[in-house]
């Protein structure tokens, strides 16, 4: 269902929903816009820093020895972007819910989450979702999607969870013209994103180009400034590599799941010391291979949604688009 509302109404709606949900909204925090439990919402800035993976797959989370039956208030995440939704639905849900065995901790957090996405109207210069099969608006996985028109907003529900939000809110349905207006705005945003990276992962065959290039010199040159901080992985909405930290005490078995980075030297090392990728260039290339070949094979989508966070986070100014461009 697509409803139509006035811009000013959104604050009232969020107010109503905050009675039943713990609300996280994109909000300015220092120099960054983060998902916070604040009142002031920044609807414009893309992407919201930190993204949404922290909400279903926290950076460090007790997975054994926690109280699994503890009840928590439902969480509503407002202002989610298409790139992050795509990572959640196409990668995270597949690996942690659909592929057995399901991760029970993820499942609980995921089911507790209501996702309110928003169309991107002012893509950042690091955005390139359209080059990797995405769009600057939510296509699936949202419960409610908000599209800002000029004075009005369209609110599209896509699940029972989303429909439930309007049980006590009466709104008119959007007309065909309203939807046309929304789609025109979306087209404009799409064109704006396309300027940032005029490539298409399928047509330009990123996968094959990466696979076929095992030229040590090329990758060494691209990785030359890498500081091996792992920031690109931690900021990435599709990266979920993790390690299990053993923190049991004498009374109880406790384990903590913690994000890991394939760029770190010890990532694939085994107990005896053997390491299949001791050199940085191999690990650097592996990240591209993983995203555009292995994940593509596994999830039928590349492990990159074009959110551009790896570009903004990199202290060495390494740009994934330039690395790929050099291979085409």
């Amino acid at each position: 269902m697509i409803y139509k509302a006035e811009k000013e109404n959104i604050a009232e709606h969020l107010d109503i929903w905050s009675n039943s949900y713990k609300l996280y909204v994109p909000s300015e925090t220092g120099e960054l816009v983060l998902y916070e439990t604040k009142q002031e919402i920044n609807w414009q800035q893309v992407p919201v820093w930190g993204g949404i993976k922290e909400f279903v797959f926290p950076g460090r989370n007790r997975v054994v020895g926690n109280d699994e039956n503890k009840k928590t208030k439902p969480v509503m995440l407002v202002g989610v972007r298409g790139c992050d939704l795509r990572a959640l639905v196409e990668v995270f849900d597949k690996i942690f819910l659909e592929q057995e065995p399901a991760d029970t901790v993820y499942k609980k957090l995921r089911e507790n989450l209501t996702l309110v996405s928003v169309d991107c109207r002012e893509p950042a210069e690091t955005c390139f979702c359209t080059a990797v099969g995405g769009n600057p608006y939510g296509e699936k996985g949202f419960d409610l999607n908000i599209s800002f028109l000029n004075d009005e907003v369209l609110m599209e529900t896509a699940s029972g969870k989303g429909e439930k939000l309007f049980e006590n809110i009466k709104l008119p349905k959007a007309s065909k013209e309203d939807i046309k207006k929304r789609d025109d705005i979306r087209d404009t945003s799409e064109r704006a994103v396309k300027i940032n990276f005029k490539r298409d992962y399928k047509k330009d065959n990123f996968r094959e180009k990466i696979e076929n290039n095992n030229d040590k010199k090329y990758w060494e040159e691209k990785a030359e400034d890498c500081m091996i901080c792992g920031g690109c992985n931690f900021a990435c909405p599709t990266c979920y590599c993790n390690l299990l930290d053993e923190v049991s005490d004498s009374k109880e078995i406790k384990k903590v799941l913690q994000w890991d980075s394939c760029q770190l030297k010890g990532y694939a090392r085994v107990g005896g010391g053997a390491n299949p990728r001791p050199d940085l260039w191999e690990r650097f290339r592996q990240r591209y291979l993983c995203k555009f070949r292995i994940m593509d094979e596994e999830f039928s989508v590349p492990g990159c949604t074009g959110c551009g966070r790896c570009i903004s986070v990199c202290p060495a100014d390494i740009d994934i688009r330039e690395t790929i461009e050099g291979l085409l």
Binding site: P101, C241, A268, V270, G272
Partner: peptide, 19 residues
Amino acid sequence: MEKNMTCGFGKCRHCLLGD
């Protein structure tokens, strides 16, 4: 084969060997 099998069931990616 011996690789870094951390989770044991395909969810941590450490032991990837090719595909």
